[in-house]
C-alpha cells in the first residue's frame, strides 16, 4: 500500500520537478546572457568572469532550493485539497496516517534532493575558485538549514489548513524570512542554543499540526 502511495506522490510531483528544473536554470541563463553581452559589447572583463558568475549563480540556487522546499511542502497536501482529488483518496480504504506519511516522505526526499543538488553544484564551483577562498561558516549553514526546515513546516501546515498551493508556498517562504528576522530582533544569534531550539520547535509544531489537520480532514470532512 505504502509503495503505491509513494508512487502516486512522486508521480504527482512530476510537474513540480519540471518547474523546479526550470527555476534552477534561471541563474545560469543570466550567466549566459552576461556572457553574450560581454562578447558582443567587447567591454573590459576579468579573466575569470565565467567562474565568478557561475559561483554566484550556484549560490543563488542554494537560496532558491530553500524556497523550493516551500513549494514541495505546499503541493504535497494543498494540491490534492485544492483540486478536490483528496475526495478520491478518502473513499479508498487508506489509513490517513499512512497517506500523510507517504506525502511527507516524498516531500522531504524531494526537498533534500533539491537542496542536495544545489549545494553540490555550489561546492563544485567553490572548489574551482581557489583565489576567492569563500568561507562558509557553521552559523551560515545553520541559518540555511533552519530556513529550509521552517519553509517545510509552515508550508506543510498551510497546505493542509487552507488547501491552496500558492498561499502555502508564500506562507512557507514568509516563515523562513520572518523567523530569523524575529530572532535578530530579540538578539538571539545563531550560536545561541535558543536559535536552533526556536527553529526546531516551529518546524516540528507546524508539521504535527498540519498532519493532524490532514488526518482529521481525511477522516470526516463536511
Amino acid at each position: 500500500m505504502m509503495r503505491t502511495l509513494v508512487w502516486r506522490d512522486f508521480r504527482r510531483f512530476v510537474p513540480t520537478y519540471i518547474a523546479v528544473g526550470i527555476m534552477f536554470m534561471i541563474p545560469y541563463l543570466f550567466v549566459a546572457v552576461d556572457g553574450a553581452y560581454i562578447a558582443m559589447s567587447g567591454r573590459h572583463h576579468s579573466a575569470n568572469w565565467l567562474r565568478d558568475d557561475l559561483l554566484v549563480a550556484s549560490y543563488f540556487n542554494v537560496i532558491i532550493a530553500i524556497a523550493i522546499c516551500a513549494i514541495f511542502s505546499a503541493t504535497s497536501i494543498g494540491g490534492d485539497v485544492g483540486d478536490k482529488t483528496l475526495g478520491f483518496c478518502r473513499i479508498l480504504p487508506v489509513d490517513p496516517l499512512i497517506d500523510a506519511a507517504s506525502r511527507f516522505l516524498v516531500m522531504l526526499s524531494s526537498s533534500f534532493l533539491a537542496i542536495g543538488i544545489s549545494v553540490l553544484v555550489f561546492m563544485v564551483f567553490r572548489s574551482i575558485d581557489h583565489e576567492r577562498q569563500i568561507h562558509q561558516d557553521d552559523e551560515q549553514r545553520l541559518v540555511l538549514m533552519g530556513s529550509a526546515a521552517v519553509c517545510i513546516g509552515v508550508g506543510w501546515l498551510f497546505s493542509s489548513l487552507v488547501g491552496s498551493v500558492g498561499i502555502a508556498t508564500v506562507a512557507g517562504i514568509a516563515g523562513a524570512i520572518l523567523v530569523p528576522f524575529a530572532l535578530e530582533l530579540f538578539d538571539v544569534s545563531p550560536s545561541n542554543w535558543l536559535y536552533v531550539f526556536t527553529y526546531s520547535v516551529i518546524s516540528i509544531a507546524c508539521i504535527v499540526a498540519g498532519t493532524a489537520i490532514h488526518v482529521r480532514r481525511f477522516q470526516n470532512s463536511s
Binding site: M1, R3, T4, V14, K84, T85, F88, I91, P93, V94
Partner: peptide
C-alpha cells in the same frame, strides 16, 4: 459519488492499479 475526483493525470490502467493496491 456525484462528482468524480479521480486523478486527471492518471491513465485508466493506472487508476485501476492504484485502487487495486488497497
Amino acid at each position: 459519488p456525484e462528482q468524480q475526483f479521480i486523478y486527471k493525470w492518471m491513465r485508466v490502467r493506472e487508476a485501476v492499479v492504484y485502487c487495486k493496491a488497497f
